[in-house]
Design a protein around this nucleic acid. Structure first.
Lengths: 210, 210
DNA sequence: AGGGCGGGTTCACTATAGGAAAAAACTTTC
DNA sequence: GAAAGTTTTTTCCTATAGTGAACCCGCCCT
């Protein structure tokens, strides 16, 4: 175990954040790729411009490569990041997982405009991301750029009343119980228009990239 | 710039490979994200555990962060790599579809045990299927076999109180606001236990080959 | 055995990333 | 418009990533 890992762990503990980031065995993965192509460390060194010794250390998790080193790897080996990061993706039939979140016990992610409560956050590797949001924003101007992310989003108003701004449509007023489904790479933003801050439930699809 | 870079460049020329290494203004992108969220360097420092000074240098392209630093960024800021790497890349596949369903205007599918109201039913080709369900069943025996379907399901109780039976776990009592995420090929069934019939909102992934 | 040889790890050193605090640039306040 | 406060950049130092060379294998040789 490297000092880097300990340090990261300590930091997470110190800041109270949950460690729901997967191990991410980058070195291991690199070695897999290298061996799969019947390359020696020297070959990879030639292709990437990184020293043999450096590559060895990366493979054995003795150092955390700088980002520029990672770039040299992906360009030199002609692979892309997801390929380097994600394990061989043994799509084994994960059967019977479940993740319960009692009311109010989601993971909070406050921002100036929204107050997100991530639900089912303990389960990694899921295809949907559900979260409850208190919409603090009151004016469209509070957003400095469109919110936008790959995939699709479903949204239903649990409480209050909102105005949904989208890139290609007129703003839409949604009341309690109204719901909408949209492509979330279209810019979007919500503001509350009821007396109290509105609460919405959203479910996003998770992009397949890392 | 550095000897390393020159060396790599020389190697690429020597081997006839295209440079093709995109600029990848990681620092610039980070700053965009930070400002878009109204975060100061200090805020980001708190969230990620990286020093203010380090963040400043990354934003100004004065250093190339180690991969562990990048990891801290993505976990701390709750973003993913593509988001951090790809510039606002004029998305080409922005479709911008949307489908509004006003409260009570979903498509009804009554069964003896459940009364489903399909939401966003006008939009075909979507990755999630959202629906509201009034749980009429009162006893587990009313189900003659497990409900089961490919993919994953997210469920949140909107009203009343239910008991969730699943194939591999003890029955689980869920009250208003509680939510759960599970693999839906595991058999499952709901019954109402509150005075009035409970109402739940579900979102299923749509099975599709990848 | 001993001697090359291809492939990987370790070592000693240099370059650079990361951290703490001071300095500089900007804002706000009175 | 100076003082006080806030945010970012610079500076200086330490920790660590990256390098070339030495070293350590197991594997042919003849």
């Amino acid at each position: 175990m490297t000092a880097t890992t300990d340090q990261a762990a300590a930091l997470r503990i110190a800041s109270g954040r949950k460690a729901f980031v997967e191990p991410l065995r980058l070195g291991e993965r690199l070695k897999e790729i290298r061996l799969a192509n019947h390359w020696t460390l020297d070959d990879v060194s030639q292709r990437t411009g990184l020293a043999r010794s450096t590559l060895s250390k990366i493979e054995n998790d003795q150092i955390s490569p700088t980002f520029s080193a990672v770039q040299k790897l992906i360009t030199g080996l002609n692979i892309d990041l997801p390929q380097l990061l994600s394990p061989p993706k043994t799509q084994q039939r994960t059967l019977g997982r479940r993740d319960l979140t009692r009311v109010g016990e989601g993971q909070l992610h406050p921002t100036p405009t929204y107050e997100h409560e991530l639900l089912s956050w303990q389960l990694a590797q899921k295809r949907m991301i559900p979260f409850k949001t208190i919409v603090r924003a009151r004016h469209f101007e509070e957003f400095h750029e469109w919110v936008r992310h790959d995939g699709e989003e479903f949204l239903i108003v649990l409480d209050g009343e909102i105005l949904l701004y989208t890139e290609f449509y007129e703003p839409l007023r949604l009341e309690r119980g109204d719901s909408i489904y949209f492509d979330s790479d279209m810019g979007h933003a919500l503001i509350s228009v009821s007396d109290e801050d509105a609460v919405v439930l959203s479910v996003c699809t998770r992009g397949d990239a890392v």
